[in-house]
Computed example of a mutant assay.
Amino acid sequence: MPYSSQTHARRCKDVLAAAANDCSLYAVSGLLEDCGLASKATISRAKITLEDAGVITTTRIE
């Protein structure tokens, strides 16, 4: 299935919801992948889009 802009918008909303609730990207992407809603790469692209737009900032968890 091709990656559409509509799918990208939905995944951006998922990332925003996670950020608003202090959830880790790792946890969110794992959950969405387990449910068959998105791959980790798809969530990563959404995160990069939001970072580039200045909507969210991220910190690396070690």
Rank of each mutant, 00 (worst) to 15 (best):
R60D: 10
G54S: 11
L16I: 06
V15T: 01
R10M: 02
C23A: 11
C12F: 07
H8M: 14
A46W: 01
D52L: 14
T42L: 13
L32D: 00
L25T: 01
K47M: 15
I61E: 09
D52V: 11
R60S: 10
A20P: 03
E51T: 15
A27P: 00
D34R: 14
V55Y: 06
R45I: 04
D52T: 11
T49R: 06
E33Y: 02
G54H: 11
G54E: 08
A27E: 05
I48Y: 10
Y26P: 01
H8W: 06
T57H: 10
S4R: 00
Q6D: 15
G54A: 14
Q6S: 15
D22T: 02
L37A: 03
K47T: 06
A41V: 13
T58H: 11
S5V: 14
L37P: 00
G54D: 10
L32M: 04
T59G: 04
T59F: 10
R45P: 04
C35N: 11
Y26G: 06
T49Q: 07
V28N: 03
T42Y: 09
G36C: 14
C23W: 05
D22A: 08
G36S: 12
Q6A: 15
H8I: 07
E62I: 11
G30L: 04
L32C: 02
G30A: 07
V28L: 08
A18D: 01
E51L: 14
I56D: 04
R11A: 03
L50K: 02
R11E: 05
I61Q: 08
I43M: 10
R10A: 03
N21W: 05
K40E: 07
S4Y: 01
Y3D: 09
E51M: 13
I48E: 13
A19T: 04
L31Q: 05
Q6F: 15
T59V: 12
I48A: 14
E33M: 06
I43Y: 02
K40Q: 09
L25V: 01
T58P: 05
A53C: 15
T57M: 11
S24K: 09
A20T: 13
T42M: 13
S24W: 02
